[in-house]
Design a protein around this nucleic acid. Sequence first.
DNA 1: TTGAAAGCGCTAACAG
DNA 2: CTGTTAGCGCTTTCAA
Lengths: 336, 336
Amino acid sequence: MAVTLRDVARLAGVSIKTASNVVNGYEFVKPENRRRVEEALAATGYRPNIGARNLRRGRTGFIALVVPELGIPYFGELASLVITAGREQGWNVLIEQTMATREAERAVLTALGPHMIDAAVISPEALHAEDFAELDPGVPLVMIGEHSVDVRIDHVAIDNVLAARTAVGHLVAIGRRRIAAIGAHPHRGTAALRLAGYHEALAAAGLPQRPELVREALRYHRQNGAEAMAQLLALPEPPDAVFCFNDLLAVGALRSIAERGLRVPEDIAVVGFDNTEEGAYSRPSLTSVAPDKLAIARTAVDLVRRRTGGTDAEFVPEEIQTPFTLEIRESSLPRF
Amino acid sequence: MAVTLRDVARLAGVSIKTASNVVNGYEFVKPENRRRVEEALAATGYRPNIGARNLRRGRTGFIALVVPELGIPYFGELASLVITAGREQGWNVLIEQTMATREAERAVLTALGPHMIDAAVISPEALHAEDFAELDPGVPLVMIGEHSVDVRIDHVAIDNVLAARTAVGHLVAIGRRRIAAIGAHPHRGTAALRLAGYHEALAAAGLPQRPELVREALRYHRQNGAEAMAQLLALPEPPDAVFCFNDLLAVGALRSIAERGLRVPEDIAVVGFDNTEEGAYSRPSLTSVAPDKLAIARTAVDLVRRRTGGTDAEFVPEEIQTPFTLEIRESSLPRF
DNA sequence: TTGAAAGCGCTAACAG
DNA sequence: CTGTTAGCGCTTTCAA
């Protein structure tokens, strides 16, 4: 079997405590002993049993990252960054997929007892505000991406309203007047915020709000974008621009537009959201709101560290906004 | 703090052993006691401490999935499936990213001691055969995707040579004669196999092997594909088709071709590998070799289960081939 | 059928 | 500065 700390101590001729002290970087160890332990460590190739350590310390060293689905580029990229950021801070990141179902998200909040993980970073898609009130995960929770106004939870995200307003403002600036939106959703917090930004931008430009130009998307996959766009194109007076609430929807929209024989951006300009690499290489390349994913990952992990390390004194949820930019590409170039 | 088994036992008025028996579904418990324990379980909302259980049992309940990078669509999709397949069999899947560096892959093989995980599923990109011989992870290893001939390790993959031959054969069938390849790599096993399939298909069609039409790609990202394609287009006699060793390379190639003002498939046909959703929605949509990712994930997890459960008697590595298809789309439609 | 008790590998009092 | 020892929560002999 594997070598234990006791073996190391025995080999070094010291007590297990001294061996433990060396392993844990405790300062006050007689140099002679330290040397001998280090030799024994090297000779045996000792690796601490994390499970045992955590059992004793009362923590697990794991944080959960709860996302809808890793196969979605945005979440794949985000997960990649969270794993890396977590690793830098000594955490193991356990990924839970909910497939964007409320049920699975509730289950995660319930089942991820304090035994398995020390904290969770969650990007909820379908949870309602009351779920948070009802369910107690028993560990600190950091929410990324979504915002349900009345939930008292730490939250890291970009300013979705401003971002949407910026995106639509850009479409106005390049001369578009019939600007559609794809991605409205009855329960999704981000959807509501982006929709609000869309409406604000139209209002600021003095453009009319046309309900028929706002399309729902129950899931944010390419196919949903393609379907919504097809509906918009079937309108008696189709839009001359469309703001999609994520890049996947936009990629789907591009395809529907192409299938109709229309050109982007000449006939219809398109803007996405998330700035995935896929969008940067699509044809035409996709203008997109670019959240600083690295900042989101780092900030979330940092918040986890503070929440798990600190005292419980008077919980005041933090609301942290991370930066974003608008990456302008071919899909929204001005017509001249 | 959290409720322990001892609390449950106390509440039920039985010994901890009896409580444990009930929790673990042991059959011979007096009905009366079982009922009381179950009530106590429900009343307290008891959740077993997995870490403690595993410490005692000598296993961790975790398997590692080692991939280059989750942000790469293929691996994001694969990870998603492995997590799901693992969950079905009672495993927690821990994801390790190596960023396709040999160093990180070696580190994983070394550091993932038997304490942390019970087994690992690894998709190596940069490991050499001698790394496997040198390093002993101390846990069962299942390799997916890559094949280094002389390594005695369980292996799940499609028949890469056949798949490549099929893809290139298809290009021949639609009348292409100057068929290029993008993705050759000095150390990558899959690259060698796909290249072999490419050569075989040319030979079978009686076409000449032109070294200038085979381009290396040190990484398999979109940008590498774009660069390699640009070089091919700069040739005095550019190719009329290109077989890319993954979809990302193909997407990059599509962009370079478009930037040159050439058309796909009229001027140049393109075939990718992996059948990512991105390729299905690119413009033109991408013909691609479609490995059955679900089968790969399921088979790998199944192999893990057998290896961790069984005896050590006479290890004979398994070589399992999973099915694939060729998804023909716009990028390789015949010219008429 | 169940209880008592040992111990998985580790850390943290507490003495010394 | 270092050794002894008591558990973390759980499973598992071993008796009863």
